[in-house]
Computed example of a mutant assay.
Amino acid sequence: MQYSNPGQRWLRHATVEDIPAIEKVFAHARQVMAEGGNPRQWGTKYPYPEMIAADVRNGNTYLLVDNAGETPDATNGTFEAPELEEVRGDHERIIGLFSLFDGEDPAYGDINGAWLDNDPYMTIHRVASSGLGKRAASDIISWCMRHYHNVRIDTGPNNFAMQHILETHHFIRCGTIGVLDNQNPDMDESRLAYHRHDH
């Protein structure tokens, strides 16, 4: 699909060739979180290179992109909601990214609280913005909820921006979960657990 406005966004699966750019987006996201008072959600290392590569290789990573590389002012304005289109723009920019998983998440088995239900669900992980455009996380969450009706996600207790986005999109805070990461001692082990199920 070709978009008449280069600022129009779409989603596509990441490929191995995208990994260096993905790593830069995550580095930017860690910096923004640290500067915003949330340095311990991802620490200084997460997500790890082997994790990034596995997500891409297994088809779990999605990129939110536009084609405004030579016309950055084109991102100003209102466009159609992004959809999945497996095309690469000639002047493509990564606006944001995330990983999406189908099936039970091992980290979600033990919750201090209670999920909304035990029905099959999708899990969103590793949402990050490149800083090249606004509302990246909101576009990502909106797309997921347009296509999947039972979705879980977690975020750091100090990630107030993501908490606001999730609650704006009618996710319910269900409690806390723990994540143990021996590779990254400067990372918090506690996460807020969110769930939305549209019946």
Results as ranks from 00 to 15, higher is better:
R30Q: 11
L100D: 01
N5R: 09
Y108N: 03
A81D: 10
Y48A: 08
T44E: 06
G96E: 00
I111S: 06
S138D: 12
G7L: 04
K134H: 10
P20T: 12
T176Q: 11
M1I: 14
R173C: 15
E23M: 12
G43P: 05
P39V: 02
I94R: 02
D188R: 05
D66I: 07
R88Y: 06
T176Y: 02
N60M: 06
P185Y: 01
L192V: 11
G37R: 02
T123Q: 03
E86W: 13
M51V: 13
Q2G: 10
D18V: 06
P106Y: 02
E86M: 08
R57I: 06
I172T: 15
Y62V: 07
I111C: 08
L11R: 04
G43T: 04
G36E: 07
D117T: 14
G7N: 02
L166M: 15
N76V: 10
A81V: 11
Q41L: 10
I52C: 05
I153N: 09
P20M: 10
G175Q: 11
N158T: 07
P82A: 06
T44H: 05
R196V: 15
I140M: 13
R135P: 00
D119F: 13
N5K: 08
L100H: 03
P185L: 00
I22A: 03
G59F: 11
H197A: 13
M33F: 07
D181S: 01
A161R: 11
D154F: 10
G36S: 09
F26D: 04
H13V: 05
V65Q: 01
A54D: 15
N184F: 00
D18E: 02
Y121C: 06
M187N: 00
Q31M: 09
K45C: 03
F171L: 15
R40T: 05
A107G: 02
M51N: 09
V127N: 03
S99Y: 00
F160Q: 12
V16L: 11
E85G: 05
L180A: 04
I153G: 09
P157C: 13
D90R: 08
F101K: 07
D188M: 02
